[in-house]
Write a protein that binds this DNA or RNA. Structure first.
Lengths: 220, 220
DNA sequence: GATTGTGAAAGCGTTCACAGCC
DNA sequence: GGCTGTGAACGCTTTCACAATC
C-alpha cells in the first residue's frame, strides 16, 4: 500500500487546516486518484469510516501511522559521505519526518571526522557498532554506483533490514531484506522521454502542415 | 516504459566492461526482472536483436538513448534554494547524467546571489528569462510543501513542460505537462511499514512460543 | 542449438456499481 | 439522502510457451 503515506500527508494538512471530517471523494480529489481506490485502500486498515458521513481525520491519521509503523522515530544510517550523502544528511527533511540520521559512514579516511548536518562521519568499520547502539533498522546508500553492492552487504552484515538505495545500481540482498531504489537520473530520463515525444509530435504536425517538406526522419 | 532507463544504465556498465553482445536472459539477471519482459520491452523499440545470438550492446544503448531523447543534454532549472534545492544543485549527479543545472531560483531575496554548485541563485521573477534563454524544458521543485503549487504554476507560465517534484505535495498542472513526484519521506515510510510488519511477525512468533502470554495487541 | 519476437494465458490492480448502513 | 464497503467486471501488465530465425 504505497499510497498510505500520501493519504497521511494530505490528511495531516487537512487536520492542521481544521478539517475534522472528510469523505473518500475529497481525499480522492486531493490525492488525484479515484474515490473507490481510496475506499479500498482505507478499508484495508479496517472499517474506520461512517456511512453517510465519511472519515474522522484525526482517527484516520492515527490508524495510518499505526499501520505504517510511524508511532516512533526510526533512526537511519547513511553510507557514503560524498556529494549525495552530504546532501541527504544536510537536508533536514529526514529528521523532521521521523527518520533522524543516526550516523554517516564512508570508506575514505579523509572524509571520516568531518561534521555534516550535525553528525560526524565515521568509518564504515564502525557501521555495526552504530547500527546496534542506535538500534538502526534502515540504511541509506549514497555511494557511487560501483560501491553500492558493498555498501548493501555491509549494511546487512551490520543488522540493517531495510535499505533505501540512491545509487544507480541494482543491488541484491538476502530474502527478508526490504529494498527500495530512488534514481534521480531515471526520473529525469523518464521526463526526457516525454519531452522527446512532444518534440516528435510537434515535428510531425509541422510536416503535415507543409506536405511538400521531406517526411523522413524522427517522425512517427 | 519506465524500465528503459534501467536497461540503459546496466548496458552502459556492460559496455564499459567490454561486453559487446548480450542476451535477454543476461539483461534480465542484471535488472532483476523476467527475461520475457526484457524482450517485450526491447521489441517495443524495434527488432534489434538477432535470434540465436542476442543483442549488440552498443547498438542497443544507442536505440534506447534515441527513444528516451537522450541524444542531447536537457537543461533543468531548480525552484527553491533551501536545504533540498542546495543539496540537489550541489550534488553533481544531474550534470553528469546529461541534465545540467541551467539555473536555480528562489523567492527569498536573501538567498538570491549566492553561489551553489557553480550556479548563482536568481530571483523567481527571472524564471521565464532563464527558461527561454537556456531552452529549459524540465523544472525541479525543491520548495517546502506549501510553496510547491506556486512553483509549478511559475514553471508552467515560464514555458517548462516537464516537472520533477520533490516537495511533499501533490501538484496539478494543465494537460500536456508531465509531472513526476519523488518524496523521500514516502520512501522511508514504506520501508518503515515493512519494518513494522517484521516487528509484528516477530512478536506473534514469540507469543505463539509462549501460549500463556496475552495474545492481544498489535499482532496479526 | 540458441535466442528472439510474440500470440495466448494468467495475474494484479483499478474501476464500476450497488447493497448496506448511518 | 449520503457515503462507505465490497463483489464483480474490466483493463493493463506480466509471464508462459513456442514458432520463427540465425
Amino acid at each position: 500500500m504505497a499510497r498510505l503515506p500520501v493519504y497521511l500527508q494530505l490528511l495531516s494538512e487537512q487536520f492542521d487546516a481544521g478539517v475534522s471530517n472528510i469523505s473518500s471523494e475529497e481525499i480522492a480529489e486531493l490525492a488525484a486518484v479515484n474515490a473507490a481506490k481510496v475506499r479500498k485502500d482505507l478499508s484495508y486498515l479496517g472499517s474506520y469510516g461512517t456511512r453517510g458521513v465519511g472519515y474522522e481525520v484525526e482517527f484516520l491519521i492515527f490508524q495510518i501511522k499505526r499501520e505504517l509503523g510511524l508511532t516512533h522515530d526510526w533512526h537511519v544510517v547513511i553510507v557514503g559521505a560524498g556529494n549525495l550523502g552530504q546532501a541527504l544528511a544536510g537536508y533536514g527533511g529526514f529528521g523532521e519526518r521521523g527518520f533522524p540520521v543516526g550516523g554517516i559512514v564512508d570508506v575514505a579516511d579523509d572524509k571520516v571526522g568531518s561534521l555534516i548536518g550535525g553528525v560526524r562521519v565515521r568509518h564504515i568499520d564502525d557501521l555495526q557498532h552504530i547500527v546496534q547502539s542506535q538500534n538502526v533498522a534502515i540504511g541509506v546508500i549514497a555511494t557511487p554506483g560501483p560501491a553500492a553492492q558493498d555498501a548493501a552487504d555491509a549494511l546487512v552484515a551490520a543488522g540493517v533490514t531495510s535499505i533505501l538505495n540512491f545509487a544507480p545500481t541494482i543491488i541484491s540482498a538476502p530474502h527478508g531484506i526490504s529494498i527500495r531504489k530512488v534514481d534521480l537520473a531515471v526520473e529525469l530520463q523518464i521526463l526526457s522521454y516525454h519531452e522527446q515525444r512532444r518534440a516528435n509530435a510537434r515535428q510531425s504536425t509541422a510536416l503535415k502542415a507543409v506536405p511538400g517538406a521531406s517526411g523522413r526522419g524522427a517522425s512517427a
